[in-house]
């Protein structure tokens, strides 16, 4: 998912060799000890060093070993993203950092709940589109629906855009969870 965005702005004081690097979007998986403050360390690293966070999810994934998995979607030049990985590895309770985007074959999913208000024709239109996107209705009133939609972030973006003219009220998204394809784990 190497987004084609404008090249990084080059200042004579920032980058070497005059090479212009493109801004890319990467998904990082970070396995950490589930201890107090570990999320603050990760988030603080991003704010302290001026890195971007597009989305961040965290939850315990192995209760017995008290391990949590943090999935971060970030943007930057390839050099910046390499730096981010190394900086994350320096945090003491971090076990492993994997750049899933570099690995290539990964699956990314996000869950969203989307509230849409409308009457008559717009309700049928919303339901028709929901069916096409395989969104489920999880709450309905005479003048509203809440859809639940799981998929790649792009699919959710597209659905939200379609709902906007119909009567989009609000969206709640979980952020991206990601995992590599194939039999091998992190």
């Amino acid at each position: 998912m190497n987004a084609q965005t404008p090249p990084a702005k080059l200042s004579p004081y920032s980058s070497s060799n005059g090479q212009v690097s493109r801004i890319e979007t990467h998904t990082l998986s970070v396995l950490v000890d589930n201890e107090p403050g570990v999320l603050a360390r990760v988030v603080g690293l991003f704010s302290g060093r001026g890195y971007n966070i597009e989305s961040l999810t965290v939850a315990e994934v192995a209760h017995a070993q008290q391990l949590s998995r943090i999935t971060i979607v970030t943007t930057g030049t390839p050099e910046t993203i390499e730096q981010i990985s190394h900086q994350l590895e320096r945090i003491v309770p971090v076990h492993r950092v994997t750049d899933l985007t570099l690995l290539g074959a990964t699956v990314e999913r996000e869950l969203a709940m989307i509230k849409v208000r409308g009457k008559a024709e717009s309700r049928t239109e919303a339901l028709r589109l929901a069916e096409a996107f395989r969104a489920r209705v999880i709450d309905a009133t005479t003048e509203s629906f809440i859809f639940e939609l799981t998929g790649a972030p792009k699919k959710i973006d597209d659905f939200v855009e379609l709902m906007r003219p119909i009567g989009l009220v609000e969206v709640s998204r979980t952020g991206v969870a990601a995992i590599t394809r194939g039999p091998v784990g992190m």
Partner: peptide, 25 residues
């Protein structure tokens, strides 16, 4: 930085991987 040792190859030995390629490739 963009005029730093322009004709050189660089070897960098460091115990901290995040120091490598941080400011200079």
């Amino acid at each position: 930085l963009d005029a730093f040792a322009p004709h050189s190859q660089k070897i960098h030995i460091d115990i901290d991987a995040s120091s490598i390629n941080k400011n200079v490739a």
